[in-house]
Design a protein around this nucleic acid. Structure first.
Lengths: 153, 153
DNA sequence: TCACCGAGTTTGTTTTCCAAACCCACTAGG
DNA sequence: CCTAGTGGGTTTGGAAAACAAACTCGGTGA
């Protein structure tokens, strides 16, 4: 991945894009914060989960909190940065609900405080419009890069 | 991943969650649709990229389009379903810009047609409010599941 | 004729994943 | 006291995936 396009998408995925990482975030957001719950609810191998948790804690996305001294027991809680990944989970869920589930069935429904089922939409903060392809222009900020690749190859 | 929580997030990640898949989507959205562009801009091994492209085409997220007969040459274009993954890319980019880049530097700026830099926000389609943690309640639709795990374990 | 191009495929090695078994500290029951 | 169970991992050994580099194939241009 050397010499690739400099990009926050790639940087974010380098952190939370490994298998299971975003599912860990899903679980802790739902309140399943203990190791064995994560193993059961995600279905990940225990050693892999151990590695992911360590990485997410090191990155400041999760916090390892002791909830019992003797025996020592820990749970993993999302930090503020972790909670701010929820929009990613919501857009993934919306896409899956729309494109992967047959018959409009949703495996999980999120209810918003307004009383309706949450259907997340991404809007521009400035104008409030729903963001659509074709309404965007990309401006790479790194010399030598254009929207479609390196200018000087 | 057997017996895991039924969930559209997991289903979507099973499709586009492998290493490089979302970066492929980023590139084709930006207009870099050819194999060698993808290799250069993403920095992925060629054989891995070949596998990812096949999977994304099979899933209907990309389309393999011939752009030259003799010699036969193909490019990969996003389908409608592929373009609808852009909200995922935007939320990932926003998180990275906020939490990973020092000094507020953005490696890439997206300009919205309204004239401003795009700062994507996820809102509830019904009420228009920005979605925040604590304003949501999860309702699993699968018997035997609660928000935190299987009810009968 | 020779070099070069795009789009892959092949090769051999290094990493990672995975399931199952194991370990440790502690608690509860008989 | 002995045993079983729980939570949170670590260890083990084999299977799968990733990786960089080299190679192939059809065709073009000098």
């Amino acid at each position: 991945m050397k010499d690739a396009r400099p990009c926050s998408i790639a940087d974010t995925l380098a952190l939370v894009g490994e298998k299971y990482s975003l599912l860990v975030l899903r679980e802790v957001s739902l309140g399943a914060t203990r190791f064995d719950q994560l193993v059961r609810n995600i279905g990940a191998p225990r050693d892999v989960l151990t590695a992911r948790l360590k990485r997410l804690v090191d990155a400041g996305v999760l916090e390892k909190v002791e909830y019992s001294d003797r025996p020592k027991r820990y749970e993993y809680r999302p930090t503020q940065a972790g909670l701010e990944l929820e929009p990613v989970l919501h857009t993934l869920m919306a896409w899956g609900d729309r494109h992967l589930q047959e018959g409009g069935f949703r495996p999980m429904v999120l209810e918003h405080t307004c009383g309706h089922e949450l259907v997340p939409q991404v809007v521009c903060r400035e104008c409030g419009e729903v963001v659509e392809h074709g309404h965007l222009t990309a401006h790479p900020q790194t010399p030598g890069w254009t929207a479609t690749g390196p200018a000087v190859a």
